[in-house]
């Protein structure tokens, strides 16, 4: 596995676009804990007196693809990005950004990479358009500020300083800033945080557009819906390591692909005992709330027929009846045994 992963850049000479956007092998990042942290979490301190934020994480993000790091807060997503962006130095392991070491990256390498940090990192006293103009002055042949501002609806709040913008407005300015240098690799840390549905659609549209241009996009999210809508490749990160990796389809297929769910709502109360007696032990009946129920397990046409028969006997007409696929949320729950939020 390890050997297969460590693709050798020399085999790809002459075709630099075949190089991965980001390649991370066995990344470890340890921190010195603050005294306060050490007192509260003594179990997290290792024998060297440090805390591992990232513990042997490997991933590859390709050009022209959206690679999603999915995980709960504190899973290590942002630290992984920081190592890939050259903002933090790995304790061990290797990180390659467009085939180069990002730690101490040259201005030329940084010009090929666009970064949107989780907290934006924008100067508080500036107004959006002058700020974007300033960022654009760091590049030769940057995007046109007015065009990208128009696209992201930034003109409408240009009179306001960054300090007074809403979370979603700041996100849009930060995305514009990340795109300013026409990057080949785009890092987006929680890009949809704080966005209203409309600006979220614009942001997603831009992400897809960049992907079609061949940009390698690596984004973090704790929103499963984001991953399902955008990802070519998903890395589920927990406790500083990759616990599952694959395309959305692969992850949803999983090991027990028959695990499906049938939810239904009735007009009146169901006699649950009689239904469970009829269905047997292959499926579980869950009483969700009031007249909402769900069946989970080995769902088959036979199970659905039995449900229909029982409802006929109890003379209950369903208000709704829905067979649902597994979601990334289910996958996440199975892996971590807890909710992503």
């Amino acid at each position: 596995m390890q050997n297969l992963n460590s693709s050798h850049p020399h085999f790809q000479l002459g075709n630099t676009s075949a190089l991965a956007a980001v390649q991370i092998d066995s990344l470890v990042k340890e921190f010195k804990p603050t005294r306060d942290f050490a007192q509260k979490n003594p179990e997290k301190i290792n024998e060297r007196g440090t805390v591992s934020a990232i513990d042997g994480l490997s991933l590859t993000a390709h050009r022209g693809e959206v690679c999603v790091l999915l995980g709960a807060n504190g899973a290590g997503k942002t630290t992984t990005l920081a190592c890939a962006q050259g903002l933090q130095k790995p304790t061990s392991g290797t990180v390659q950004l467009l085939g180069e070491n990002p730690w101490g990256a040259s201005p030329e390498l940084r010009a090929r990479v666009g970064i949107m940090l989780q907290d934006g990192g924008l100067p508080q006293a500036m107004r959006p358009i002058p700020l974007l103009k300033h960022i654009s002055s760091m590049y030769q042949n940057p995007l046109k500020v007015d065009e990208i501002a128009e696209r992201l609806g930034i003109h409408s709040f240009n009179g306001t300083t960054i300090r007074r913008l809403s979370g979603g407005q700041k996100q849009r300015v930060a995305l514009a800033a990340a795109l300013m240098g026409r990057p080949e690799v785009l890092f987006l840390d929680e890009p949809s945080a704080g966005l209203d549905p409309q600006s979220r659609n614009v942001v997603f549209e831009i992400i897809r557009e960049q992907k079609e241009k061949g940009v390698g996009i690596i984004l973090t999210t704790h929103l499963l819906d984001d991953a399902q809508r955008l990802a070519d490749d998903v890395y589920i990160v927990d406790a500083g390591t990759v616990v599952r990796h694959g395309s959305v389809q692969e992850l949803l297929a999983g090991e027990d692909s028959n695990h499906k769910r049938l939810t239904f709502t009735l007009a009146d109360k169901l006699n649950t005992q009689r239904l469970t007696d009829r269905l047997g032990s292959d499926v579980t009946l869950i009483h969700l709330s009031d007249h909402h129920y769900a069946l989970e397990g080995q769902l088959s046409p036979g199970v659905i027929a039995q449900l229909g028969a029982e409802l006929e006997q109890q003379n209950l007409m369903p208000v709704s009846l829905e067979l649902s696929q597994r979601t990334l949320e289910d996958v996440f729950l199975e892996i971590s045994g807890r909710d992503i939020q």
Binding site: Q140, N141, K213
Partner: peptide, 8 residues
Amino acid sequence: QVVSSAAS
């Protein structure tokens, strides 16, 4: 794609 580079 139009590429950009670092300003001097």
